[in-house]
C-alpha cells in the first residue's frame, strides 16, 4: 500500500444544526493527485478548511504525516507542509507578483528583526537566495514577465497561476487547490492540467484538488472522492466514479421509473 500523507478519520464539521461535513474518512497517498468533487454545497471547501486548520472539526481527527492536526494553528500547519489556494482568489493584490511569492517563503526564512534592520551578511544571503528561488518559481509558471506587476492587475488566468506558485513557495509537500480552473477558458484549463501534472512529476508534490471541470478531473486524477450533502458517497479511480450510480444520482437526480 502506498504511503498515506494525509488521513481524515471520521471527520464531522457541524455549524449549529448544519452538518457541513458528516463522518467522512479518506486518505491521500503520497505523490498522488486526488480530486474532491460534488455538487455545490456538498462540503468540499469545508473539508479544505478543516485540513488547513481554519475550522477545528466537531468530531474526528486529521493526521498529516502521522501527526495530529486538530489543535494546530493554520500558520503552523503551513509550516508543517500543507499549502492551499482559494476558491475566490486571495492574492496580496497591491503587492507585486514577486512579493507574493517571497511572503510565502516566510516560514522557511530565519533572519530576525535585528539582522533585517542592519542587513547583516546573513540577511543579504538569505534575501538573495529567496529572490532567486522566487524567480525560478515564476519562471516555472511562466510568470517571470509579470514579476513586478501588482498581483491585482494580472489577468485572471495568471492570478490563478500565481496563487498556485505562491502555495508552492511555502515548500509544502501537499498542495490543496480549491477550484483552480474556475473561470478559465478551455485552453487555459488545458494548460493548467499540464502544469498540475508537471508539478507532481518535477517537484514530487502531492496534490488534492476541488474542481467542477470534469474534463480536468477525469484527465489528471489518480483517484477521486465524491461528496454529497457532507457525506462521502464514493471513492475510486476516474473510471469507477464515472460508472458509480450514486454519483450519477447526486449530479443528475434519480431516474423516475413509475411516473
Amino acid at each position: 500500500m502506498a504511503n498515506n500523507i494525509l488521513e481524515l478519520k471520521n471527520i464531522s464539521m457541524h455549524f449549529g444544526g448544519l452538518k457541513a461535513v458528516d463522518n467522512v474518512s479518506f486518505n491521500i497517498n503520497e505523490g498522488e493527485i486526488l480530486s474532491l468533487i460534488g455538487p455545490n454545497g456538498a462540503g468540499k471547501t469545508t473539508a479544505f478548511n478543516v485540513i488547513t486548520g481554519v475550522y477545528i472539526p466537531t468530531l474526528g481527527e486529521v493526521y498529516f504525516k502521522g501527526q495530529k492536526l486538530n489543535d494546530i494553528k493554520p500558520y503552523k500547519i503551513t509550516e508543517m507542509g500543507i499549502a492551499r489556494t482559494f476558491q475566490n482568489i486571495r492574492l496580496f493584490g497591491q503587492l507585486s507578483a514577486l512579493d507574493n511569492i517571497i511572503i510565502a517563503m516566510h516560514s522557511r526564512r530565519k533572519s530576525n528583526m535585528i539582522q533585517s534592520i542592519f542587513r547583516t551578511i546573513k540577511y543579504k544571503a538569505e534575501e538573495k537566495y529567496c529572490i532567486e528561488k522566487a524567480d525560478e518559481l515564476l519562471n516555472y509558471m511562466d510568470l517571470l514577465g509579470d514579476r513586478n506587476e501588482q498581483a491585482q492587475n494580472l489577468p485572471y488566468g495568471k492570478q490563478r497561476k500565481l496563487e498556485i506558485a505562491r502555495a508552492m513557495a511555502t515548500e509544502a509537500d501537499l498542495l490543496l487547490l480549491d477550484e483552480p480552473a474556475a473561470g478559465m477558458n478551455p485552453q487555459e484549463t488545458e494548460e493548467l492540467m499540464e502544469i498540475i501534472k508537471n508539478i507532481r512529476k518535477d517537484l514530487k508534490k502531492t496534490i488534492f484538488l476541488i474542481e467542477h471541470d470534469m474534463k480536468l478531473v477525469m484527465g489528471i486524477s489518480d483517484r477521486i472522492v465524491v461528496f454529497d450533502y457532507g457525506q462521502l458517497i464514493a471513492e475510486g479511480t476516474p473510471e469507477e466514479i464515472k460508472k458509480n450510480p450514486r454519483v450519477i444520482e447526486a449530479y443528475l437526480g434519480k431516474e423516475v421509473t413509475n411516473a
Binding site: V54, I103, I117
Partner: peptide, 30 residues
Amino acid sequence: FMYRLEKSRHGMAIKSIREDEIASEMMGIN
C-alpha cells in the same frame, strides 16, 4: 528603521496582513 523593516521578511509579513489576513495566515504567517 521603517524603511529597512518594510523591506524585510517581517515587514512583508506585516504588509500581507493588510492585503489579506486569511491568505496571510494560510501562507504560514503568524
